[in-house]
Nucleic acid binder design. Structure first.
Length: 104
DNA sequence: CAAGTGACGTAGA
DNA sequence: GTCTACGCCACTT
């Protein structure tokens, strides 16, 4: 099992402080985590969560650029969309309305 | 140490 | 607006 390095922990902490009903993009999380161009690395960290990490992180609040959901395996996209909708996040034609819920 | 992989981002067609 | 190509980072083998 991959040990959560400082980078991963940083990403988790960043995602965890995202308020309910609001979403952040991978690039935004990467920037706050300390890696402006590490959007991909952020996805790696969140992917590790689903693998078995016990850290409860609202990964569903992390979306791609423009509020787009990533087409990851398992069809979790629908789960993420449903969870966000349950928190009051509005969608527009499949994209999260970052203008209303984006971290800005 | 080098190569491969992946829940991304931006730019170009 | 959509798709494709390249670059970015970190982790695994």
């Amino acid at each position: 099992m991959p040990a959560a390095t400082g980078f991963f922990s940083r990403v988790y902490q960043t995602v965890r402080r995202i308020p309910r009903g609001r979403v952040a993009t991978y690039g935004q999380v990467a920037l706050l985590a300390g890696t402006p161009r590490g959007a991909r690395a952020v996805g790696w960290a969140l992917r590790a969560l689903r693998a078995g990490t016990a850290a409860r992180v609202p990964w569903h609040r992390v979306v791609g650029a423009g509020g787009r959901l990533s087409p990851r395996a398992g069809g979790g996209e629908a789960i993420q969309r449903a969870r966000l909708a349950a928190e009051g996040v509005t969608f527009r034609r499949g994209r999260v309305d970052l203008g209303r819920h984006g971290l800005r």
